[in-house]
Amino acid sequence: MRYVKWTFLTVIALIVVGFFHYTLPQHDVVRVVGTYQERQDLSDWTRIFWATPDDQSTGLINRDVQFIQAVKANGKEVVYRNEDTGWNWPPYFKFDTANLLARAQDMISTSDNPKWAVVTHYGWRNIYFSSFPNAISIKPVAGPDVTIIPWFNIFFFVFLAVILLMLRRMWLQFRERSIDPVLEDMGEAWDSVEDRAGAAATEARGVWGRFKAWLGTWRGKPRV
């Protein structure tokens, strides 16, 4: 059972970590090299990796999606999709897809005369599932060595830790005030039942002993 418990907890932890890693914003320092638009099929389970803007029906089987091509400082290529999130999940409330595309096109550069930008995005890139991170914003930076501090993620996890500590404190207080007294009363009641059962067993052994002693008195008496 111990292995089952730890396996279950590990699976839950991986799901939680994966959820936060997919949903929370990430930052890449890149050089934009191009943009394009392509029709994507949304008929299979990989639909979960695409946004569902409020102005589009969930019954669509395909639609045109904008993409932003970029290259990192280490030469690794990365492709972002450019989709509105609207009021849906995750709550980035992105409605400026067209403006973001214009900014990306304005920042297109070559390796001889690079323009560096920080792309804030969420999601994962997976070539097998054809999933792309969704670009949320693009801002110019001085160079590829700029340091990006993820303030939102820091504040989010601090806030989450405070909430968890408050919930733990509330649970401990609730347990101390409501559950522990009940368990203590149940323990005392059980001890009382055990004491009475022990006393009854002792009394029964005493009666049986007296009965055996009385039978013993008849063994030595002569028959008439």
Rank of each mutant, 00 (worst) to 15 (best):
T85K: 04
W89S: 14
R168W: 06
V29A: 02
L60T: 08
D145S: 14
S57E: 10
W190L: 10
T120Y: 05
S43G: 00
T147V: 12
P181D: 05
V65C: 08
N82Y: 05
F20Y: 12
W124L: 11
T23P: 01
R169N: 09
G18L: 08
P140L: 09
F49D: 06
T10L: 02
F20T: 13
R175M: 05
G86K: 07
V162R: 02
T46N: 10
P140S: 11
G143S: 11
P181H: 07
V158T: 06
G123T: 10
V16S: 10
P114V: 02
Y92F: 14
W214L: 11
V71G: 09
F159S: 14
T10C: 02
V79H: 04
D84V: 01
Q105S: 06
A51R: 10
V141M: 06
V29K: 00
D28F: 03
A197L: 15
L9P: 03
R168S: 07
E188C: 06
K94A: 07
P222M: 02
R177I: 02
S43Q: 04
G198L: 15
G206N: 14
E184G: 04
A199T: 13
Q37H: 04
V146E: 14
M186C: 00
I15V: 12
E83M: 03
H21Q: 12
M170S: 07
M186F: 06
L167M: 13
E83T: 01
R177P: 01
E194R: 15
Y122D: 03
N62R: 06
D41M: 00
R223L: 13
A213W: 15
W87D: 15
N88K: 13
D185C: 01
M186Q: 04
I12H: 05
I154S: 04
L24E: 02
Y3A: 11
R81W: 08
V182H: 03
Y92G: 09
Q105L: 05
T35K: 04
D112Y: 08
E194Y: 14
G216D: 13
F211R: 12
K139G: 02
A204G: 14
A197G: 11
S109G: 00
N134G: 09
I148N: 10
D64I: 08
N82T: 08
W218D: 09
G59E: 11
M166S: 07
S137V: 12
G209H: 15
T35D: 07
V207K: 15
T58N: 13
H27A: 09
K139V: 07
E194L: 15
I154A: 07
N74F: 10
K212H: 12
T58W: 11
W214H: 01
G18H: 07
P91K: 14
S137D: 12
I108Y: 00
I48Q: 06
T97M: 06
E188T: 15
I68E: 04
A199W: 15
K115G: 00
H121C: 06
V16R: 05
M107P: 03
R47S: 01
E38L: 02
V16Q: 10
W171S: 02
W151S: 10
I108P: 01
R103M: 04
M170G: 05
K221T: 08
A51C: 09
R63Y: 00
L167E: 08
V78P: 02
V224T: 04
S131K: 01
S57G: 08
D41H: 07
P150K: 02
P133Q: 09
K72C: 06
I138K: 00
S192D: 14
G34L: 02
F20V: 14
P222Q: 06
